[in-house]
């Protein structure tokens, strides 16, 4: 019994310690972002990596999810003779919920995992120490551009996802099932309010920062975790942890933001 309680205590302390480290990394990154010199190139490079190179995945997943939504909504709405609501149903679901959440999850899978692996490998091959010894702050040089790029890229990717998903719904509803184009488009325009767009935007900005911060922190502080002494296997552990934790954080904060901005 005592061992069990000790394990719970140890695990709780570990979680608190990790949360504290990640929060302090956020504070340090925010502090560094405000300090000169301001360098645009590392941020642009990360926007290319997180944003531009995720574009194909976002286009494909957005289109597929929009088509699935169109199909499911059409089947349900047809039973009630309300297919005119197809456009508004697809648009609201995508803008308020699915767009930000799915985009963030896609970014976690594609860019987040490689951010963690990259920083983890840099840590175990002494590249982070080398930066420190060159009097270059690794927080500013490695982490800050990634977090800033996440804050910029994820909302942009979300807006692309939203647009493509609505087109997917349009394709299924209007082209495949013959729903009137005017009713689909007007349904979207009438139903979507500024509050819905704002909710989606706020969510995507928060998810962008959250995902990149968690993935950066997992790799950057790899040496402080249990996996730190396990070399290549440790990198795979922290990468898996980063993906799982980021995904759960996105889903949970989606609920929190939704509840707070209701």
């Amino acid at each position: 019994m005592q061992n069990f309680l000790e394990r719970i205590g140890e695990r709780t302390l570990g979680i608190l310690e990790e949360t504290g480290r990640t929060t302090s990394l956020l504070v340090v990154v925010l502090f560094h972002m405000l300090q000169p010199p301001y360098r645009l190139y590392p941020i642009v490079r990360q926007i290319y990596f997180i944003g531009a190179r995720s574009l194909t995945l976002i286009l494909f997943s957005g289109l597929t999810i929009g088509m699935v939504l169109g199909l499911q909504f059409y089947n349900i709405l047809e039973r009630f003779g309300a297919v005119d609501l197809l456009g508004s149903g697809v648009a609201l679901s995508v803008i308020r919920e699915l767009g930000p959440v799915m985009t963030a999850l896609m970014v976690v899978g594609r860019a987040g995992s490689s951010i963690t692996a990259e920083l983890g490998i840099m840590r175990i091959t002494e590249q982070v120490d080398a930066l420190e010894c060159m009097a270059i702050s690794p927080d500013k040089y490695l982490v800050a551009p990634k977090v800033v790029a996440g804050l910029i890229s994820v909302p942009l990717l979300t807006s692309i996802f939203d647009f493509v998903a609505m087109f997917g719904g349009y394709f299924v509803g209007v082209v495949m099932f013959g729903v009137a184009e005017g009713s689909y488009m007007n349904g979207m325009i009438d139903a979507v309010q500024w509050e819905d767009v704002r909710l989606g935007l706020v969510k995507s900005i928060i998810f962008g920062g959250l995902v990149t911060l968690i993935c950066c922190a997992k790799g950057f502080y790899m040496h402080l975790s249990k996996a730190g002494s396990q070399g290549a296997e440790g990198v795979s552990h922290v990468t898996t942890d980063a993906v799982v934790l980021s995904s759960i954080s996105v889903l949970f904060s989606d609920f929190l933001i939704g509840a707070l901005m209701q």
């Binding site: 840099m122 091959t125 002494e126 590249q127 120490d129 080398a130 420190e132 010894c133 060159m134 009097a135």
Partner: peptide, 16 residues
């Protein structure tokens, strides 16, 4: 400031 006055060659090179 001290580190600007020193150079370090790590065991594995630690090249980026």
């Amino acid at each position: 400031a001290l580190r600007k006055e020193m150079g370090v060659a790590f065991q594995g090179g630690a090249l980026f």
